[in-house]
Write a protein that binds this DNA or RNA. Structure first.
Lengths: 122, 122
DNA sequence: CTGCCGTTCTGCTCGTGGCAGAACCGCCCT
DNA sequence: AGGGCGGTTCTGCCACGAGCAGAACGGCAG
């Protein structure tokens, strides 16, 4: 694992990468459910440290992994994607890698900001 | 490349996999632009046969690849994700692997086709 | 101090991403 | 008939990285 963080490698525009946005949303979803890494990892049938790396956007999970984790979180792919799209929008709108790159900035003072997807009940 | 198609491996529900939905949307977007494989592949800086495999959902592209292809198609990640979510929804709604698996069912008679994004509202 | 939870490091294996080269398959030309 | 064109598919190849186990470490609450 060389240096995924090393974004000097590619002169990519400040667009967040897929795995980063995905990981961020997965973590958010898990925390909203009050689950721990080990819970989700167990249900998804993957190792805990790998799930940690996925959530931090450091590894590129396969489609089957994504499906497994999403299933373990009780969300389907479409909802997940919409949620991620909202994340990306927010990151673009706000700074995103302007400086320290501190996500979760706009913790919902009340406004749900993005599409936010559909609630998953209670 | 063993057998990606072999969905007997995992007892996954009839949910389409990420790479499949992604590929489908990428192809749709490319065709709407009237581009050829070689055009997009050139701009994205990848080989043509690999792009073909991505669009057919047979290989698992890295985040950088996704960004490159999306960039070559002139769409950003958020739009792409929303489009894919719509695809997935449609596939779920209609048959999807009920039988022949003939996507693109609901072609809208001639609509501008673009990103189109969120409708399904009602 | 002691767990609990998450992160990170080492180290390993084996799969597969991604390429080149070429053949092949419709399809539309004329 | 031939011949491009666009796309698919096959072979073969190599390096990288997915994914795991094991363990150590760093907060943070009790």
């Amino acid at each position: 694992m060389a240096e995924i963080l090393d974004f000097t490698r590619t002169p990519e525009p400040p667009e967040p990468l897929w795995r980063e946005a995905l990981g961020r949303k997965l973590r958010e979803t898990r925390e909203e459910r009050g689950d721990r890494l080990v819970d989700v990892a167990d249900r998804a049938g993957i190792s805990v440290q790998y799930l940690s790396e996925i959530e931090r956007g450091r590894k590129e999970p396969s489609s089957e992994m994504i499906a497994a984790v999403a299933g373990a979180l009780g969300v389907d792919l479409a909802d997940l994607l919409i949620g991620i799209a909202g994340q990306v929008r927010n990151l673009r709108a706000s700074g995103y890698l302007k400086a320290g790159n501190q996500f979760h900035t706009s913790r919902p003072t009340g406004r749900p900001s993005g599409p936010v997807a559909m609630a998953w009940a209670a």
